[in-house]
């Protein structure tokens, strides 16, 4: 049985998992969806209610019935001939997604993660509500495009507010890559809320008693919790802003958090996710967010947590 890896061709953690599968003598078919349709072909016939055929690149092929698991790790978009018009490209893209995606969706294989489940889990309001229903503590949160609502929310906040984006926090303007880290709002910020009206915004209570943060990598039924200790003011606010000021430590989760994470994975039907928590000085965990394709490689490199091996085993066995 074969493991299919759908990923971009330069992705370090994917390479390590592919090498780990090779060490286990597990057949792998790796492809980027950007190879379709020029360098990747699908050939599938419906036979007795099952799609029978192959997925084939210029270098190898895999029988659809021989696929045990599929790791869907941020492949690039389909890439069509540049001579196509915009209208032709739009048509071709929709056909490719519905055709290729439709065939793959029917396979009796383990998905890590199934694309639609991963997409559904991208909504941060869904994440917060699901986490709360699964017994995890969450921060008081406001979603709004109403400045008055922000002021009302701020008045009830004991330690002030932070703003967080819902989605991509990067933007390129005037040739410069820019990043929106979590921002603790000052009084002056709250006095200038005009831009709130222009789209949806997310505000949360600032968790003043933060001692450290934790990222939990969930791979099937295995959890790898890593404490992230920050030593700079910027990293204490948002650890992504200052990696040089971080240290890491493998820890054990409290049982209620462990149970909550597992319930969350089941609720959103995810087999892989990266969870972020704030831990206060009393050891209480507050859920921040989860990423169903969140990064893990640097945590493994810094702690020795066997995440690559866990992913390889999960994909090889085809079941948690």
């Amino acid at each position: 049985m074969t493991v299919v890896v759908l990923a971009q061709d330069c992705d370090a953690p994917v390479d390590r998992v592919v090498l780990a599968l090779a060490e286990r003598s597990v057949p792998v078919f790796r492809a980027d969806l950007a190879w379709f349709p020029q360098h990747l072909a699908v050939d599938a016939e419906l036979v007795d209610g099952r799609w029978v055929g192959v997925l084939r690149s210029e270098h190898r092929s895999v029988d659809l019935g021989d696929i045990r698991s599929i790791w869907y790790r941020d492949p690039a978009a389909f890439h069509f001939p540049p001579a196509m018009t915009a209208a032709e490209r739009s048509f071709a893209f929709a056909e490719a997604r519905l055709g290729v995606g439709g065939v793959l969706a029917t396979l009796d294989a383990l998905w890590v993660n199934f694309p639609n489940r991963a997409c559904d889990a991208m909504y941060k309001p869904v994440q917060l509500a699901t986490a709360a229903r699964c017994g995890l503590d969450v921060a008081r949160t406001l979603v709004t495009n109403d400045a008055a609502a922000v002021r009302r929310f701020a008045e009830a906040s004991p330690h002030g507010l932070v703003h967080k984006t819902f989605g991509a926090n990067t933007l390129t303007e005037s040739g410069t890559l820019k990043v929106a880290f979590t921002r603790r709002l000052a009084m002056a910020d709250l006095a200038e809320l005009d831009g709130v009206a222009h789209t949806a915004h997310q505000f949360q209570d600032w968790l003043a008693g933060k001692a450290y943060e934790v990222r939990v990598i969930a791979v099937g039924g295995q959890l790898f919790p890593v404490a992230i200790h920050a030593t700079s003011p910027a990293a204490r606010l948002d650890w992504r802003s200052d990696y040089d000021a971080l240290s890491y430590e493998l820890i054990e989760l409290p049982s209620d958090v462990d149970n909550g994470v597992r319930r969350y994975l089941a609720a959103l039907r995810l087999t892989y996710a990266a969870f972020d928590f704030v831990v206060d000085r009393e050891g209480c965990y507050t859920f921040l967010e989860s990423n169903s394709s969140g990064q893990f490689g640097w945590l493994e490199a810094n702690t020795g947590a066997p995440i690559t091996a866990a992913l390889a085993d999960l994909l090889a066995h085809g079941a948690p």
Partner: peptide
């Protein structure tokens, strides 16, 4: 090597 991101996880490539 390390994998990290200013835009970690779901939010895009």
């Amino acid at each position: 090597w390390r994998t990290k991101g200013t835009s970690d996880g779901d939010e895009g490539p």
